[in-house]
């Protein structure tokens, strides 16, 4: 186990050490202590290592993550796991706005609540939120899956492309072109798999979820609307 005191050694030293890990490495377990809300902790990691951050983080923790499993033993600031490529990020507490934004792959798990714009413009990432999500979540989300055990705020899935949104609780309102859709067999399987990998299978069952997706009305220009522009 490599233990790194962020307060004593500084962010650049941490991220340089993590960026030096390429491919297979024998330094597979890392612990970051005294994070104290610092920004960009473990951003840009590209190796199959396990990193545990003991405390709360600031902006952009685990941004652009590839391959690594990053656990945050606290809450995360804005933009956690932004543009994640692969790997896993698990937050024990809450996540601030735009968690998992533009993520292309991997799994983001938030055990508390996520605030506004969770999964905005997601492009393949899977996100599991044990609590609630805030307004404008999954705005223009393109692909991937969002599973929310709690409630969703206003304008869920506004201008949605092909991401699949599964919400167990109430949805305050759906955004433009986002509609409820039937849960088919393949969707129950997706939710079951994500609940298990998201450490939430003891809390919820797939049949409790409703699915929301794109009505696909915004995909093509509609000549009847020409005078609106």
């Amino acid at each position: 186990m490599q233990t790194f005191d962020l307060e004593a050694e500084g962010l650049r030293a941490l991220n340089s050490a993590l960026h030096a890990l390429k491919g297979q490495t024998n330094m597979t377990a890392w612990e970051v202590i005294n994070p104290k809300g610092a920004h960009a902790i473990a951003a840009g990691v590209d190796a199959p290592v396990e990193i545990t951050v003991r405390g709360s983080t600031g902006y952009y923790c685990a941004g652009m993550n590839k391959l690594a499993t990053i656990r945050i033993k606290g809450s995360a600031g804005p933009g956690v796991a932004e543009n994640m490529m692969s790997g896993t990020v698990i937050i024990d507490g809450d996540a601030s706005q735009y968690a998992g934004a533009t993520g292309r792959g991997g799994l983001l798990v938030i055990k508390g609540n996520a605030s506004s714009r969770c999964g905005i413009s997601m492009k393949g990432i899977d996100i599991v939120v044990h609590g609630n999500i805030g307004h404008m979540s999954c705005f223009m989300a393109q692909s991937g899956n969002l599973v929310v055990l709690g409630d969703a705020g206003e304008a869920l899935g506004d201008s949605l492309y092909e991401a699949r949104l599964f919400v167990r609780g109430k949805v305050k309102s759906l955004g433009t072109d986002c509609i409820e859709k039937e849960m088919r067999d393949e969707h129950f399987l997706i939710v079951e798999d994500l609940l298990r990998r998201g450490e939430a299978d003891a809390k919820a069952r797939p049949e409790e979820f409703r699915r929301y997706g794109s009505a696909r009305k915004l995909y093509n220009f509609n000549i009847d609307n020409a005078q609106s522009y």
Binding site: K36, G37, A38, S56, G58, Y59, S75, G77
Partner: peptide
């Protein structure tokens, strides 16, 4: 029990 604190970021409160 001792205070209510506000910060633009969590860093301000640590």
């Amino acid at each position: 029990d001792q205070y209510v604190a506000f910060g633009s970021e969590y860093r301000a409160l640590v």
